[in-house]
């Protein structure tokens, strides 16, 4: 899996065309209503144009999201702010700070940051976790939880699968490994359900 990134780290990342020209820098990352995917970025100008730009960058116009820059095909990739903000308004700004609950109704903590993959998918959250969730007794912990398949986002709360507590990680590199395990297990359980359904037909 390619390097995962924190949404907070994307701020100030330069937006560069394939011709090597810098056209803006990232101000905020905007997510869709279920916080499953980046829908785009709001932008700041650079240098003499510093400060919020009227234009935004829809995810569909992003060539690549890398560790040091967001690549766009050309200057024409920048669009009206409505292209990004209107569709993601519900989630934008609501994700960090949201309450985290497990699907068994246990409070797991609150969202500190969002973990994204280079393809724009949200793969997890950095949360300030409760003792009950991480089964440790040194107060609150900053841990990573995978987004999982069954996650729901309603208003200012996130519901994570209770099984996700077994996959909490303390740092991003070990989280990368755990996301892979979680995804593999989710895929395997789906596969076995499929087989069972197939047998019923026979």
């Amino acid at each position: 899996m390619d390097a995962l990134m924190l949404a907070s780290e994307l701020a100030k990342r330069p937006v560069v065309t394939l011709a090597g020209e810098v056209v803006a820098e990232v101000k905020d990352t905007v997510f869709d209503g279920t916080a499953g995917q980046i829908t785009g970025f709001t932008l700041n100008g650079r240098g003499l144009l510093a400060g919020p730009l009227k234009q935004s960058l829809p995810w569909s116009s992003v060539h690549a999201l890398g560790r040091h820059a967001v690549l766009v095909p050309g200057r024409e990739a920048l669009a009206e702010p409505a292209a990004v903000v209107a569709s993601g308004e519900a989630a934008h700004g609501a994700v960090p700070g949201a309450k985290v609950l497990t699907d068994e109704g246990v409070e797991a903590g609150s969202v500190l940051d969002v973990v994204v993959a280079p393809d724009g998918r949200v793969v997890g959250f950095r949360i300030s976790a409760t003792e009950a969730f991480v089964h440790r007794d040194h107060g609150r912990h900053s841990v990573f939880v995978p987004r999982g398949e069954a996650l729901a986002v309603s208003g200012r709360a996130l519901v994570v699968p209770s099984g996700a507590s077994h996959f909490v990680a303390d740092d991003l590199p070990s989280f990368t490994t755990q996301v892979e395990i979680f995804a593999a297990r989710a895929a395997a359980s789906k596969g076995s359900k499929g087989t069972a359904a197939g047998r019923e037909h026979l």
């Binding site: 330069p14 560069v16 065309t17 394939l18 011709a19 090597g20 020209e21 810098v22 820059a69 690549l71």
Partner: peptide, 10 residues
């Protein structure tokens, strides 16, 4: 080589 601009050689 893809492009050479004010920010970088891409």
């Amino acid at each position: 080589l893809l492009g050479l601009g004010d920010y970088a050689l891409v």
